[in-house]
Design a protein around this nucleic acid. Structure first.
Lengths: 342, 342
DNA sequence: CACATTTTTCAAAGCGCTTTGAAAATCCGC
DNA sequence: GCGGATTTTCAAAGCGCTTTGAAAAATGTG
């Protein structure tokens, strides 16, 4: 059943039927009722392809997930992020167009989205320092919101970020206050902006305490459990192993925990661990006393908020660009305890 | 730059330009070259909305992710599944339309996809015993593939499933062979078909060994780490605690592991754990000797295969419905050891 | 009741492509 | 160099909606 048939059945023009259904004021309430009832009766549903062509809006938001050949892992954070975003889209009548691309094709995928009119806006995730996507999208003139920031980009753009530097600075200071001074950093890939900021936070805390940085205590890799394990095993095997770890994700921290146990040590007593916690729904660091002492910032909420900001940008493209910096919250778990200087 | 402008620039009709670009044979190679070059030069990209309207195909596959109010967790398996599927879609020029819906709106979301022509096919995940979506989609006459099966549905439909019963039967038999007879089952929600099959496998193995089933040893809940922990803590506190666990996911197994350690026991020595392993990329149970003894079946590969099957169905809707049953592979890890009867 | 206003409905154009059916151009053999 | 076959190009219709600008109907006013 399409509009033509429906309007024929009703002895009305397509115009009137369309307007009745879309809530335009210039239609008699009696006929509107007649139309909506007929629409229900005949199960009329406007064809979305025709509608998007006519309106010029695709009512869809693009998310592009790059998948590298080296690190085949799709960020686990991602699924919670889109869960948050997706619900907001739905509330606004939008849906989400997801594209998984090999790394090299990434920019091209954004361009395809924009120039072919496939989506009305996009979300950029995990920006690098000087992320090419940002100016690229600005040139394409498509609304977008960055989850994170690209510190080397000066031109304004809309973003929502966690204060990664302060979060990790707080984490590190917490360990220092507990009496640790050999503190390892297991960071994410430092091509990513957030990882760089986290390192800065780590270094700032050491510096404030007069602790010299030690390159051998800093690692940077994909934030998977095995990588956390490997790095921790390696570090714990040093002559003077670290007494504490700052991990950039809960998965890394789980790897560290496994390494600690493998060496017959106890987490929270022999070795302290603090991590950044994205508050993933199926891997929660929860309870009255959570497993890990952590800096928590829920990624699902961030997804929802990014979606809202994007919706607003689409509605009002000339409004000032939103910039939001969220603070992570320190939660006390069982993974930290007094260090050698306590 | 749209088709009209481009063809004007080239002094050709829209027909010819369109055909040249879409590789139709009835166009002179010389003009085709001229057209493709001009298209590149002017960065012409066909508008996807207009194209989908004209062709009647949306070139998009729908995935619907329900999010319950009770258990707010988005299945973790899901993100690896779509990573596999997404790449296959891309190869075929399709992309993925994702909708996150509250539970109640789920069927309606499928209907919207189908009747509004938003997608050319859908994937159904995590079917229940008598999943309403299957007949619903069959009625809507839209190509679909089910990841899993709905055992109470007799009408044919396309599916790809893991032999869940045999996998868990093998797992349980493995534990029995090791000398265990008090074996707990931590299952997923038994509204889901795969969970029911897994329980059947568990019971079949017990039965074959003449072990009486014990309802107090069987749990069923969301497959999250905390649920695994809670269930295991509870079970290990019984007068005669189980000496082995069959866990329906690696997250549950991780929870079990934590519980075992909390009770100062050692996994693989005091208590054995075997799990179903979806081989999630960022939470791998890998290495020469993986942490968990497990029945492994990679979910990303399943996603890719489901996508392929769906592409085939779209191309040839009258071909026989594909049904594929995959066997899980037993991998030996450190989490199992001899039981009391060894 | 005639006229101006407002409300309601309509026919037709347009969104940017693909595709049909026909016309124009080219080619071929004799 | 001519008629027929073939290759190449084209104008126009159509996909199913929304939206514009105008007409028709209803309402109000003096």
């Amino acid at each position: 059943m399409n509009l033509k048939e429906l309007s024929k059945r009703l002895n009305l023009s397509q115009t009137t039927v369309s307007r009745a259904l879309n809530g335009y004021p210039e239609v008699n309430e009696a006929t509107r009722k007649r139309v909506t009832e007929a629409a229900r009766k005949y199960r009329y549903r406007p064809n979305v392809r025709a509608r998007t062509l006519a309106t010029g809006k695709s009512m869809s938001i693009g998310h592009i997930i790059p998948m590298s050949k080296q690190n085949e892992l799709v960020n686990m954070v991602f699924s919670d992020f889109i869960a948050g975003a997706g619900l907001v889209y739905a509330e606004h009548g939008y849906n989400m167009t997801l594209t998984i691309v090999k790394d090299d094709d990434e920019l091209e995928a954004y361009r395809a989205f924009a120039e072919r009119g496939a989506v009305d806006g996009v979300i950029v995730q995990a920006p690098t320092r000087n992320d090419r996507r940002i100016s690229f999208l600005a040139d394409l003139d498509i609304p977008f919101i960055v989850h994170g920031r690209a510190s080397q980009i000066s031109a304004p753009y809309g973003w929502l970020d966690v204060n990664n530097k302060r979060a990790i600075e707080t984490a590190t200071k917490h360990l220092i206050a507990l009496g640790h001074d050999r503190i390892a950093l297991l960071n994410g890939l430092e091509t990513l902006d957030f990882a760089i900021r986290r390192r800065e936070g780590y270094l700032a805390a050491l510096d404030a305490a007069g602790i010299l940085e030690d390159a051998s205590l800093m690692r940077s890799d994909d934030m998977s459990e095995p990588n956390g394990y490997e790095a921790a095993m390696d570090l714990l095997a040093q002559e003077t192993p670290p007494t504490a770890f700052v991990a950039s994700s809960m998965l890394l921290a789980l790897g560290v925990k496994r390494a600690i146990e493998d060496r017959d040590l106890e987490m929270g007593r022999d070795v302290s661990v603090i991590c950044f916690d994205d508050d993933i729904s199926y891997l929660p660091n929860a309870g009255d006393t959570p497993l890990f002492t952590a800096l928590r910032s829920p990624v699902r909420a961030a997804g929802a908020r990014c979606a809202s900001l994007l919706m607003e940008r689409i509605i009002a493209p000339d409004a000032p660009l939103p910039n939001e910096l969220w603070e992570a919250e320190l939660v006390h778990g069982t993974s930290t305890g007094p260090g050698p200087n306590a």
